[in-house]
Amino acid sequence: MMAAAIGMFREDVMASYSTNEFKGGLKIMMDGDPCSIIENEFVKPGKGQAFNRVKIRNLMTGRVLEKTFKSGESVEGADVHETEMQYLYTDGEFWYFMDPETFEQVSADAKALGDAVKWLKEQDVCTLTLWNGSPIIVEPPKFVVLNVTDTDPGLKGDTSGSGGKPATLETGAVVRVPLFVQIGEAIKVDTRSAEYVSRAKED
């Protein structure tokens, strides 16, 4: 994978974790992919073998899987961390982000971007999950301000706003907006629910 190339030259040896260190959020390697522990259940008969039954999210595929370990076993840790980076631009194949403090740049591919792509506006600060230094997940800001590029002019004066209407935003995302929202206006959108929040304040 291209996006991971930067990380391939890192020499860091990751710690391994015993099942006693398992907890929600711990990042471990599983079948070659970085994973995050969601839930860890300690299972032990009164007189017998102890197990850790865990629910894990594969950070590359987003899939949730279960796995049982013998208590006391160790697994390899994954060099995964989250960081805030500013979105710069895209060349159509990669999306480029910059650490606002070190000015270090990384590029993410479409797979890492996923749905975030429809909310990305230059200069916005996103949360990137890096594995061995390369982005594997890009999360847009919780709220973004985007211009409406297309929507039905609708009936001016109808402010009951019951049904709303679809509006296309500058990034290509389509959200439902109240009838009074017009082309050229900037609106605030909650990216988690893809819902209109308000008209953006005029600066």
Partner: peptide, 11 residues
């Protein structure tokens, strides 16, 4: 064998 039996029993 008992550890496998414990696994099957608990799970």
């Amino acid at each position: 064998a008992d550890a496998w039996l414990d696994l099957l029993l608990t799970h």
